[in-house]
């Protein structure tokens, strides 16, 4: 077997850098289908990070039922409340998970649901307030067994 020359060694090293950088890139930006969902939801406006606390397990053993709890900071009065929260999973065959619609009668912008996750991926929540401002939060969940059949 031929020893690797300098050029090949560089290519290998570059590959490694790409591999290690990839998960970070995925964390910073929502990919593909999910981005389209967000754009449709926000109307192209930029959502600011914050206000939402997203509670998900770090590692989900079973992707079929992953508990998700979400709280959005808001006084929930008739003048200022959380209107809608969209939840997305960017690694599922279909990025949409649920859209929650609150009213001042909800008292608290808080909800829990159980979701399916196909693979290890980011779960993103985007909240739309009654004054039109947008907030977002995301979390990565490691999934041991996928939840979309096959």
């Amino acid at each position: 077997m031929k020893a690797i020359n300098r050029r090949q060694a560089f290519a290998l090293g570059g590959g490694f850098v790409m591999l290690t950088l990839m998960p970070m890139a995925a964390d910073a930006e929502v990919t593909g289908d999910a981005a389209k969902w967000i754009e449709k939801f926000t109307g192209g406006k930029q959502a600011v990070k914050g206000k939402i606390s997203l509670d998900l397990p770090e590692i989900a053993e079973n992707g079929n039922t992953v508990p998700l709890s979400l709280t959005v900071e808001s006084p929930m009065t008739a003048d200022s409340y959380v209107k809608e929260v969209m939840i997305l999973a960017d690694g599922n065959p279909n990025a949409g998970v649920a859209t929650l619609m609150f009213t001042p009668l909800s008292g608290k912008a808080e909800a829990s649901i159980r979701i399916r996750l196909a693979t290890t991926q980011n779960v993103v929540a985007v909240a739309k307030m009654s004054d039109g401002s947008l907030f977002t939060e995301q979390k990565t969940v490691k999934v041991t067994i996928g939840g979309c059949g096959g």
Partner: peptide, 17 residues
């Protein structure tokens, strides 16, 4: 409260609000 659900919701949907 209301919500629109997608196929990514687990069987026997549990909703708390």
């Amino acid at each position: 409260f209301s919500c629109v659900l997608e196929p990514a919701i687990s069987a026997n949907p549990y909703i708390q609000f």
